[in-house]
Design a protein around this nucleic acid. Sequence first.
DNA 1: CTGAAAGCGCTAACAG
DNA 2: CTGTTAGCGCTTTCAG
Lengths: 322, 322
Amino acid sequence: MAAAAGVSKTTAVFVLNDRPNFSIPEETRTRVQNAAKLLGYRRNGLAAALSHGKTGSIGIVVNIEAGQQDSELGASYLLGVLLSATQAASAAGLRLTTIAYDVTNPPPPDEVTDNRVDGLLLVGIMDEAFTRAVYGTGFPCVTVGSGYALRRVTADNAAGATQAVEHLISLGHRRIAYASPGLTRADRERRQGWLETMERHGLPSDGLEQDWEPLLEWIESQAPDAPTAVFCRNDSYAALLVPAARRKGIRVPEDLSVVGFDSGIIAEAMELTSVRNPLPELTARAVEMLTGLIAGKEVPELVTLPTKLNVRRSTASLGAAS
Amino acid sequence: MAAAAGVSKTTAVFVLNDRPNFSIPEETRTRVQNAAKLLGYRRNGLAAALSHGKTGSIGIVVNIEAGQQDSELGASYLLGVLLSATQAASAAGLRLTTIAYDVTNPPPPDEVTDNRVDGLLLVGIMDEAFTRAVYGTGFPCVTVGSGYALRRVTADNAAGATQAVEHLISLGHRRIAYASPGLTRADRERRQGWLETMERHGLPSDGLEQDWEPLLEWIESQAPDAPTAVFCRNDSYAALLVPAARRKGIRVPEDLSVVGFDSGIIAEAMELTSVRNPLPELTARAVEMLTGLIAGKEVPELVTLPTKLNVRRSTASLGAAS
DNA sequence: CTGAAAGCGCTAACAG
DNA sequence: CTGTTAGCGCTTTCAG
C-alpha cells in the first residue's frame, strides 16, 4: 500500500478518496499523491466493494436468444432496453452488468444473485421457475416489461393497443387485424386492448387475429372481408410483414395500413406508425425502484407507464390510395 | 459461514464448488448441503473474486452520447456492438459490464481500471487523452472499431467502401457521392476507399463528398452532373437521407441508389443495401484478445476483418426506373 | 479426508 | 491530524 511509501494508511485513504475531511497538510497530501503516482498505485475497487458491501453496479439479465439469429430485427426491443438501461444506470451513478440468460441453458439462480452486483433487472425472461427462484432468494430485483414477477414496471400494453386501433378506426378502417403469435404476456395484453377496442366500436374481430403470413395471403386474395389494416404485436413483427407485403404487391400504406408497437429504432428506420414503448422512462423507473430496494425501502409492486402513438408513414385513410 | 453449521471450512468449499476432489463421504456432503440450504447460504462472488484475483467479467466502455438524442437511429452501431459483445462475452463465460463514457464528463481513467472487471473493451471513444491514459495504466484493454489505440480490431473500412462503390459502378452509376461529415477515423478510411475506387475507375470525385443535406438539394435540382448514387458513411446516415429524399420526391432506388455501411438492424428494417460490418466476429475476436491479454499472452496489435456487401433494395441499375 | 491459519486490498471504528 | 486494529467472505497452502 502506498502508505508504506510515505506516511500511513488512514491518511492515504483520505487523500486518495478525498473525503469530507478538512485539514490535511498540503505537504502530507502531495507526499501521498506522489508516492501513489510513483508506485503506480490504483485503487482496487473490488476490495473496496467487498469492504463496504456495495458494488456500485446492477445487473440486467437478458434473454440473449432473441438476438441469436442472423437477423438483429428480433432483438430490437432488447437493444432499446439495453441502451436505455445503460443510460438510466449511468445517470444513477451505477454500472450495468449484462448477464446473459439462455433458455436452453439458464444460469443457476444462485449464480446471478452472487453479490457481484447490488441488484438485478430482469428483462424478457419467460421462465417462471427461474424468475421465482431469483425473487425467492430475496436479492433485490425488479423486472422490466412483462414477465412472471410481481415487482415490475411495464408499459400499459392494453391502452397502447387501444391507441393503435383507434387511430386506425379514425382513418376509416373497420377490418383491423392483430398480427401476433400470442406467446408472451405483453402479446396477450395488447391483444386484449385490441379486442376490447374493436368491440367497443362494434367491429367484428373474429378471425382477425393471426400470424402475419396467413394474414398476408388473405389480403393478397382480395377477399371482400380481408383486413385493410393490421396492428402488429411489435415493431420487429411489422418489419417482417411490411417487406413481405410489398413483395406481394401490397402497397403500404395505400393498400394496407400497419402499426407496430415499441416505436424503437426499427420503426424510425422504416417510418412505421407505432405505439411508443417508453423504455427510457421504464428503465429509469426500474433503476429507481431497484436502488430503493437496495436501500431497504418499500417499493410499489407494479408500475404502469403510459404509451403514446407515433404516427409515421405506414398508415393512411382507407381508400385514399394516392 | 455454512461451515459453522456442520463441519468446517475447506470441506464446505469442496462440496459447494464441487471441486475435482474425489472422496467426500456422501454423508458429509449432504450434511453441508443441507446446512447451506437451511441458512440460505449464497456464495459471495465478490469475496471470491477478490480472493483469487479474477472477477469473471470484462468491461465495455461506450460513448453513451451517441444514443442520447430522441432518436435511437444514431446509436445503431452501438446497439449492434453491445448485443454482439454480450454474446461474445457470454460465450467466453464472462459477464459484460457496461461503463458509460460521456465526452462532456469522462470518467477518470483510474476509475475504469479499478479492477472491478478483468479487462476493457473500448468502443467509439474519440478521446485520445482518455484512451492513452487507460492504455497507459497497463490494464488489459483492446478497442473495437476505430479509435486512437494501437491494439484494436476493426473492419476493413477501405475495402468495404470499395465493395460499395464497385457495386454501384457495376449498376452503371458514374456520379457516386460519399455522404459524410468526415469526423471519425472510420469515416476517413471509408472515404479513402471510395476515393481510390473512383480514381481507379477513372471517375471524377470532385465535389462529391458532402453532407447529406446539400447532396439532396443538388440531386433535387436535377443538375446534369448531380450524383445518381450515394454511399453513406453508415446506416444511420442513410436512415436520415432516404426518408428526406423521398419527401422531396426523389425515389429510392429508381432515381437514386444508396448504400450504407454496417448492415445492422436499420439496414434490415429499411431494406438498405449495405456493407456488413462484422460485429459478431469483431467482438468475438476482441474478447479473445482480451482474455489472452489477461492471461498474460502476446496478442496482435491490429486485427482487420473483411466486410461484405449485402445487396438489398436501395440500389438499382442506372436508368432502370421501374 | 478435514481443520487451522494466512491473506486478497480495502474500509471503518477507535485510539493516540 | 495520523496510526492501529479488526474485519468483509472467500481461497489456498499447509498440517493433522
